[in-house]
Write a protein that binds this DNA or RNA. Structure first.
Lengths: 221, 221
DNA sequence: ATGCTAGTATACCAACCGGTATGGATAATT
DNA sequence: AATTATCCATACCGGTTGGTATACTAGCAT
């Protein structure tokens, strides 16, 4: 029972048609699907095993118990979603004018919110946040804060915008997006009170532009 | 098995020390606590019965099954939270200047977000939104949309603000608040990247004020 | 008194839960 | 050829699940 923590390519079981997918990965992929669909409590290990086309004992040879498997899949999905931007790209972002910057930021978010897996991740992380606060923290740190720091970093750098609290302003931007995702898509609000994401972006830009114009004017006098 | 849908005061069982609380209410109160603490799947009916100090069969004499009980408690809490404003109060709100209006809106939200029960409700409704979409819809309709329509109604009425899309602007305001509640309180972001709610309000007001000033100026020329 | 209702207490049900044990098959390593 | 490790198949474990059945009691209205 040696610690075989090779996250690399030493897949020990390449048997069948030459799949490079290790058994452990097979399990993780299946677990991602089942856990994100049903949440922690109403997911049974039998169901995961069946979905992974694997025997239950095999799961327990890779993961100590249900909780560890759940934590593993949340980490997996979280990090997968956050194969973050290169420093060069962030540099580029910082050099853009505000309107272009917001446009790019929203594009990134739009891509995220179109992924069913990402929506499910958000739902499950919130739903299980009471019993798995560490996972909620992980999610916040690696996903939410990344976008937040990007935006607040930009706002802080561009002093011509004269924002007294860059973090709070970044929160308003990102928060508007997250809230839209939750109440329109996850909670199904779009079915009886639709609100286009683009309209939110436009309205947001309206506000930011106004702020920008005001500051230009006040710095002129 | 007649339909006894009296939501009034005909409590049939006033036995003990003279509690006016019916047995059904006893069950609902206990179920609220347990379900909101643990979510749907990891709440057992035995636990609810014990918490309500009632036998399990008694629960099933009032509710057909677990799902019905869960739906009942979500409705109960949802409506309890939304003993909405009087029309007169809404009228008052509409007559306020924008900054005062935002201030009052945030005060209402601050009160909501301080209630642990409300936070738990939000968490559970999101977490179970896949298996209970009707409950998510109920929540959106009776809670979220109420605040949204209040704000968007105000924005639409005050044409001097020249907001092209009142609903989207209302979403930015309310969404900023909800998102703050989720990532600071529910997901625990405050523990390592604290952001005061008041700072969000101030930053938001900064943006709205700028928009307002811009419109005044443009209408002057 | 006689039902009727609402509740209690307890026991029970089949199904499923997370997790383990055993024993055999396969394949790579030595 | 022997060893080792991984996996499968099946069966099993004690405990819990949602939900029911039976038998009994207390209050209430006719």
């Amino acid at each position: 029972m040696q610690d075989k923590r090779d996250s690399g390519s030493s897949a020990p079981a390449v048997i069948g048609g030459g799949r490079p997918r290790s058994k452990k990965d097979q399990i993780v992929q299946a677990a991602i699907k089942v856990f994100l669909e049903n949440g922690y409590a109403s997911t049974s290990m039998n169901r995961v095993a069946a979905e992974a086309d694997v025997i239950k004992a095999t799961i327990y040879s890779h993961f100590k118990d249900k909780e560890e498997l759940f934590a593993a899949i949340i980490e997996e999905v979280t990090f997968k979603r956050m194969q973050a931007d290169t420093p060069e790209f962030e540099q580029l972002l910082h050099s853009l004018p505000p309107d272009e910057f917001v446009k790019l930021l929203t594009q990134k978010f739009r891509m995220l919110s179109q992924s069913a897996e990402y929506r499910a991740l958000l739902r499950v992380v919130i739903g299980e946040s009471e019993r798995f606060p560490e996972l909620a923290t992980l999610y916040v740190k690696t996903v939410i804060l990344k976008g937040m720091e990007l935006a607040s970093g930009y706002f802080a750098k561009h002093k011509e915008m004269k924002l007294n609290n860059p973090l709070a302003t970044a929160h308003i931007c990102c928060g508007s997006f997250v809230a839209w995702l939750i109440w329109q898509e996850i909670l199904g609000g779009k079915n009886f009170k639709p609100l286009e994401f683009d309209d939110v972006v436009i309205a947001l830009q309206e506000l930011v532009d106004a702020k920008l114009a005001q500051d230009k004017e006040s710095s002129a006098e």
